[in-house]
């Protein structure tokens, strides 16, 4: 062999196909975010304006999603609800994701009895019915979105911590982690610069699922009157508004329900796309 540099095979430059799930996720979540940030651009009416001449009207060209018992335009109300529900999706999950990932990384890295104790704490939290616990906490703290975030945060970080700690435990045994220790790097650098980037993917994918779950939970609490408070437009609240007229005015409850389904689908697609994009090449 000559002493010259060895060229790298051109096949190393391979391109990955754009996952179809990514396209779907960008379309659905992009539209959802646009509606959340600029609802007034898209909503044809004021979502809180009463119109006693148009009460409980079915879907029509004037009111595509119909009107409710105060004559409020349902399309406008569903669109304005995007702001609160997208906010719930992000605010309820970001804190648990960040906190849980950090705790999980530390626990997985330290291992030993710390991990054993942590495992039992996780078991205890997970065996407790999530919705019941959240309802109990909100009942004590009082209804409202802020208290709902607190209640979710108390429980939800555990799931992220468990995912990340399991993954860090695998990663810390690989040679590159030993190589980093052998280089004399500090624990903080090894955990957050070397291990966590290789261990975070399952947690990021779960974050997407969790955002969809947060919207469902937020809507459930809204429906029960423990989350967003009327007259705020929130999908759970809207569904609750329509429940008394379900047989005569189905559209009041059904369209907010469809919005929940579509947004949840968007987050699921995003989760699949991220799992693809963040896959580690070995």
């Amino acid at each position: 062999m000559s002493a010259g540099a060895v060229p790298i095979a051109p096949s190393a430059k391979r391109r990955r196909a754009l996952p179809g799930t990514l396209v779907g996720a960008v379309i659905v979540l992009g539209a959802s975010l646009a509606l959340a940030f600029f609802p007034s651009l898209f909503a044809p009416y004021d979502p809180t304006a009463f119109d006693y001449n148009a009460i409980m009207q079915g879907p029509s060209w004037v009111h595509p999603f119909g009107t409710d018992n105060f004559g409020r335009n349902m399309l406008s109300r569903v669109i304005h609800a995007y702001r609160i529900d997208m906010q719930i999706a992000v605010f309820a999950t970001t804190g648990p994701f960040v906190f849980g990932s950090i705790v999980g990384a530390l626990v997985g890295y330290v291992g030993g009895w710390v991990e054993a104790v942590f495992g039992r704490v996780v078991d205890a939290v997970i065996t407790f019915p999530f919705l019941v616990l959240v309802i109990a906490i909100v009942s004590v703290l009082g209804p409202g979105l802020r208290n709902m975030y607190i209640a979710v945060g108390v429980v939800d970080w555990v799931f992220y911590a468990r995912l990340v700690s399991a993954e860090v435990r695998i990663q810390r045994r690989l040679d590159y982690a030993d190589a980093a220790r052998g280089m004399g790097y500090g624990h903080t650098r090894i955990i957050f610069r070397h291990l966590l980037p290789n261990a975070i993917t399952p947690a990021v994918v779960y974050l997407m699922t969790d955002m969809a779950l947060a919207i469902l939970l937020g809507s459930s609490l809204g429906y029960l009157g423990l989350g967003a408070q009327p007259p705020a437009a929130e999908w759970g609240v809207l569904i609750a508004d329509g429940k008394n007229f379900m047989t005569t005015a189905w559209w009041v409850s059904v369209f907010p329900g469809i919005a929940i389904v579509i947004t949840g689908l968007g987050f699921s697609l995003a989760g699949d796309a991220l799992a693809d994009l963040l896959r580690v090449n070995r």
């Binding site: 040679d175 590159y176 070397h194 980037p197």
Partner: peptide, 11 residues
């Protein structure tokens, strides 16, 4: 290290 596949951080 022995294993050239696991001894480098893939990220």
């Amino acid at each position: 290290f022995q294993d050239p596949y696991s001894s480098l951080n893939p990220r």
